[in-house]
Design a protein around this nucleic acid. Structure first.
Length: 492
RNA sequence: CGGGGUGUAGCGUAGCCCGGUAUCGCGUCUGCUUUGGGAGCAGAAGGUCGUAGGUUCGAAUCCUGCCACCCCGACCA
C-alpha cells in the first residue's frame, strides 16, 4: 500500500491497473475475467446508479427485472442480434451436479440433467424482454412502455481489464416500446442526452454525442447513438449507447398493436445502457500519479478530517472541536469522515486519502487549536492553506462546486487540445502517433475506407458527431466527396 | 483464440540456467520512543514455492499437463 504508483507517462495501462487495485476499487476474482468490486469502488458505483436512476425516473421510466437466462431460441429470432452476440455467450446445458462415483470428494455434471433447450446467460436482454412485451402490448393504449432494468450481464470476452472490460459486468438497460418511429427516435436521443448530462455534470467528464457508423452499430439496431469521452492517454472510450431498434425486435417477436386508427402495426423500440465501465472512465479521465481524483458529486467521502495530535487527550479535544462542523456538513448533504484511527500516522493518512481521491482534506493539530485555524487541502490542484476555522463549512460547500467545476474544466481543456481537424491521411497518421486524441476528418461514407483506416492505424470512427453542421470536403483517404467530418480515434 | 511473459509469506521480490528444504524489503504482532507528509529502535510470528503428475536418494530448481494473471494482436460496452 505504501508503494508509489507507476507514473502515467511511464506506462498508462500499468498505472490504471495499479490505481484500481491500490485505491481499493476492485480486485481480480478467482473466476476468469470477473472482478470483485470492493466496498469503496461499489460506493462510487452506487452514487452513479442513484443519480442515473433518478434521471431515468424523472424522464418517466420505471424499473423492472427480467431473468438472467435467455432460452437459446429467443436469441435466434433476431438475426443480426444473434450473430453479434453468439461468439461471447455463456451457455447453461445442465441443471444438476452429482458426486463423482470414480473420484472421491469430486462433483461432476449429472449427464441425466441435460436441458432440452440450452439457456444463455444474458449478454443483454432484448430477446427475453421483447418476448415478454409481446404479452403486454395489444393497443396503442399500452404504449409507450418505458422500462429500465439494473442487472448483471455476461459477455465472454477474450481479454478483460478491471471495469473497462470484464466478463460479467453491472449495468442498466432501458427497453422502451413506442407507437411511432418518431417517438422512438425521440426517446433514443432523449436518453443519450441523459447520459451526456450525467457524464458531464456528475462525472465531470466531457463527452461528444453522435451516431455510430453502420459497422460499429449495435447488433440489431437501425441507429446507435453514443457518447464518446477522451482519456488522458489520448484514447477514446465509449461511455454510453442509446439504440433505435426500429421494428426489428417487434417483428422478430411478433409484437403488434392496434393504433388509434384501428391499423395493426409492429411497435417501435429503443434500448440504452451504461455499465460499470463508467468506473474505468471516471478513473482514467481525472486521476493523477498520486491516485484518484474524484469529482465531489460522486465521491463516497467528500471531506476527510485528519487529526494531528499527541496523546488521547489532544485527540479528544480535536474530536470535540470538529463534531459541530461534521454535523453542519452533514446537514448540508456533504459526507465527511473524521479519521481518528490511532494505528495510522497523519502522513500515512494524507497519502492514503490522496490515493482514494477524497476531494477535500482538513487537518487539525495543536497549532490550529491554539490559533483557531484548520488546514484545508484540495485534491484536485494539490493546494493547501491554513484558514480560520470559523465559517469553514461555507468554504467547504463552495469548494465542492469549485472542485467539480475544475475537474470538468481540466478534462475539457485536455480534450479541446486533443481534437484535431485533419485533411490529409498522412497528417492523420502522423498526429495519431505523435499526439493522439480525437480527429475530425472527412470520410467518404464507405465501410471499405473505414476498414482501411482501422487496418492501417488501429483508429476507428468513434461517431458521426451531432451538431457539427454540413461542410463540403473530400475524404482524407480516397478523395471522394464528403458532406461532414466524422470523429476518429484509437479507442478502448 | 494466436504470440510473449509471470506465478515463491498479506504485498513486492532473490534463488531456477548449474537439484540438497528458501533471500530481502514492505506489511503484521509485542515493547519502548514518536506523531504538521507514507516514523525509529529492539524482538517475534508468518511459506502446501499456482496446481496435478513425472524424473531423482532428494525438486522452488529438470520434464509434462492444467489453472490464473499481465503485455501485444483479433473481438467488444
Amino acid at each position: 500500500m505504501a508503494d508509489k504508483l507507476t507514473p502515467r507517462a511511464t506506462d498508462y495501462s500499468k498505472w490504471y491497473n495499479e490505481l484500481v487495485i491500490n485505491a481499493d476499487l476492485a480486485e481480480h476474482s478467482a473466476v476468469r475475467g470477473c472482478m470483485v468490486i470492493k466496498p469503496y469502488g461499489f460506493a462510487i458505483w452506487e452514487k452513479m446508479r442513484d443519480a442515473l436512476d433518478k434521471m431515468f425516473k424523472d424522464t418517466g421510466h420505471v424499473n423492472a427485472y427480467f431473468p438472467l437466462f435467455v432460452p437459446k431460441s429467443f436469441l435466434e429470432k433476431e438475426e443480426g442480434h444473434a450473430e453479434g452476440f453468439a461468439k461471447e455467450c455463456a451457455v447453461v446445458t445442465h441443471y444438476r451436479l452429482k458426486v463423482d462415483p470414480n473420484e472421491k470428494g469430486k462433483l461432476m455434471v449429472d449427464p441425466d440433467s441435460k436441458l432440452e433447450e440450452e439457456l444463455i446467460v444474458r449478454p443483454t436482454s432484448e430477446a427475453i424482454i421483447w418476448n415478454t412485451y409481446k404479452g403486454w402490448i395489444q393497443s396503442y393504449r399500452d404504449l409507450p412502455i418505458l422500462v429500465n432494468q439494473w442487472a448483471n450481464v455476461v459477455r465472454w470476452e477474450m481479454r478483460t481489464r478491471l471495469f473497462l472490460r470484464t466478463a460479467e459486468f453491472l449495468w442498466q438497460e432501458g427497453h422502451t416500446a413506442h407507437a411511432t418511429a418518431q417517438e422512438a427516435i425521440g426517446e433514443t436521443k432523449k436518453m443519450l442526452d441523459v447520459y451526456a448530462e450525467f457524464a458531464e455534470k456528475w462525472m465531470a467528464m466531457p463527452v461528444i454525442k453522435g451516431s455510430k457508423t453502420e459497422s460499429e452499430r449495435f447488433a440489431g439496431a437501425l441507429d446507435t447513438m453514443c457518447i464518446e469521452a477522451l482519456m488522458q492517454d489520448g484514447k477514446a472510450l465509449q461511455a454510453g449507447t442509446s439504440h433505435f431498434l426500429g421494428q426489428n425486435f417487434a417483428k422478430a417477436f411478433d409484437v403488434k398493436f392496434t393504433s388509434k386508427e384501428g391499423v395493426l402495426d409492429y411497435v417501435w423500440a429503443t434500448s440504452w445502457g451504461v455499465s460499470t465501465r463508467l468506473m474505468g472512465a471516471l478513473v482514467m479521465a481525472h486521476s493523477d500519479d498520486q491516485g484518484l481524483r474524484l469529482p465531489p458529486m460522486l465521491a463516497p467521502i467528500q471531506v476527510v478530517i485528519v487529526p494531528i495530535y499527541k496523546g488521547e487527550e489532544q485527540l479528544a479535544t480535536i474530536g470535540e472541536k470538529v463534531t459541530p462542523l461534521m454535523q453542519e456538513l452533514k446537514s448540508r448533504g456533504i459526507s465527511v469522515k473524521f479519521d481518528d484511527d490511532d494505528t495510522k500516522r497523519s502522513g500515512w493518512k494524507f497519502a492514503e486519502y490522496e490515493l482514494k481521491g477524497v476531494p477535500v482534506r482538513l487537518a487539525m493539530g495543536p497549532k490550529d487549536l491554539e490559533n483557531g485555524t484548520v488546514e484545508i487541502a484540495r485534491r484536485d490542484n494539490g493546494t493547501k492553506e491554513t484558514v480560520p476555522f470559523e465559517g469553514i463549512a461555507d468554504r467547504i460547500q463552495q469548494l465542492m462546486i469549485d472542485i467539480q467545476d475544475n475537474l470538468f474544466a481540466q478534462a475539457m481543456g485536455y480534450r479541446e487540445e486533443h481534437i484535431t481537424r485533419v485533411d490529409s491521411y498522412e497528417e492523420f497518421k502522423k498526429l495519431l502517433d505523435d499526439k493522439g486524441g480525437f480527429f475530425l476528418a472527412h470520410w467518404d461514407g464507405t465501410k471499405e475506407t473505414e476498414e482501411r483506416v482501422k487496418d492501417d492505424t488501429k483508429a476507428t470512427i468513434r461517431c458521426i458527431p451531432f451538431g457539427m453542421g454540413e461542410e463540403e470536403g473530400v475524404c482524407m483517404v480516397t478523395g471522394k466527396p464528403s458532406k461532414q467530418r466524422v470523429l476518429f480515434a484509437r479507442a478502448y
